[in-house]
């Protein structure tokens, strides 16, 4: 299951809408070992295409190095489909290379309707998983980041 804060879902959907009709892509990083998406990082789709996405290679390198330094991992890797359903394409499956990530697909084919689904993609096998949208991680995990904001 993917448990994710509502504001992060909103960010992904907004990014997908903004880049439509091209595909949008990005990462939500989180502390290693927590499976908790926290830091939203929209990436440049170097392909700038309605049917393909590829992280810009320099941005990709910088982000992965930064995550390494921060003990973060790519908890979520998201991209949009702009004319088809939010299900991994054959290319998505063939190129999936982060077995620990939740692959989130957002479809922008309907202007008024949000389609967002999450998958694990490991060794060519796709497994859809439920998405639980929460207002905060406060009651579901423990950790220093879960102290509520004051005021």
């Amino acid at each position: 299951m993917l448990q994710i804060r509502r504001d992060l879902v909103d960010e992904m959907v907004a990014h997908a809408r903004r880049d439509h009709p091209d595909e949008a892509c990005g990462v939500i990083a989180g502390p290693d070992g927590t499976d908790r998406p926290e830091r939203f990082v929209p990436m440049t789709n170097a392909a700038r295409s309605p049917t393909f996405y590829e992280f810009d290679s320099a941005e990709h390198f910088r982000l992965w190095r930064e995550m390494d330094r921060n003990d973060e991992v790519p908890v979520v890797i998201y991209h949009s489909h702009t004319a088809t359903e939010a299900y991994p394409s054959r290319t998505d499956i063939a190129l999936a290379s982060e077995p620990g990530a939740h692959y989130v697909l957002v479809s922008t084919r309907h202007p008024e309707q949000i389609e967002l689904r999450s998958y694990r993609i490991v060794d060519g096998q796709v497994t859809e998983e439920p998405v639980e949208v929460v207002e905060s991680y406060l009651f579901s995990h423990t950790g220093a980041d879960d102290v509520p904001d004051r005021g």
């Binding site: 392909a47 393909f52 996405y53 590829e54 992280f55 390198f61 290319t91 190129l95 290379s97």
Partner: peptide, 10 residues
């Protein structure tokens, strides 16, 4: 030397 599989798809 850093090896990173591209994050890409369709």
């Amino acid at each position: 030397v850093t090896i990173l599989p591209a994050v890409a798809g369709g």
